[in-house]
Amino acid sequence: MTEAMTHNIENRDEFNVEINGTVGKPLIDDPKFTTRNVDVHYGDKQAIFGVDLDVGKNEVLAMIGPSGCGKSTYLRCLNRMNDTIPICKVTGDFKLDGEDIYAKNQDPVLLRSRVGIVFQKPNPFPKSIYDNVAYGARLHGLTSNRAELDDLVEKSLIRAGLFKEVKDDLHKPGTGLSGGQQQRLCIARTIAVDPEVILMDEPTSALDPIATALIEELMIELSGKYTIAIVTHSMQQAARVSSRTAYFHMGKLVEVNDTDSVFTNPEHQLTENYITGRFG
């Protein structure tokens, strides 16, 4: 592709809309998470530009936007997963219950036990189903005896809606499950640590529709107890599971609002262009 061609495409009407700060309601009362002035750089490249956004208690916040818009990067800032990437530099204010999570004395290990994460591709450890779920509890020393651990594993699997399918195979390897089961195993693994917030990074993009439906149901159920932030490629999924939706575009947060109003009455032209399928 020549430079002239790229230039032309960038100037097409669908994209050529100015972003002047975030429209809608990015900030809310009594938030779980507050983030202000978030910038993220990968080496010399800036991936996120000045995002201000709150995540409410026990809500499901969906983040949508075209590929490379920074939604996953933003999500990974919330439990400092980006710390594991050496060239990634995160700046801005992040507060969980008013506590600065990037403070010097803040421990990423402790933070991640409070803010769990489920990844795009199911990534069970090469261990048994039981050991996968017990992993976090063992790490953090959450249980004091075998019976308690058994109990915790069973409860977590039940909540993740997986127990019935695997109760006789708890000592078989987790990698032997189907894709959807693996992802629910990863969710069970995460809730076994009993976090306050669960981050989900396109958790269903590698799954078939039935497995996806199961996980979406699970998300709605879990939202009663946990705060959930989900990045998704699918606008329909955002509409189905979330109460609020944030639209990201080229590293900027364009619009945040109740899911209904984002999809029925978008304020920003870019949001409208995206949800009506003019690009993406």
Partner: peptide, 8 residues
């Protein structure tokens, strides 16, 4: 990532 995400 899975392990770090659990707080290991």
């Amino acid at each position: 990532d899975g392990s770090y995400g659990m707080g290991a």
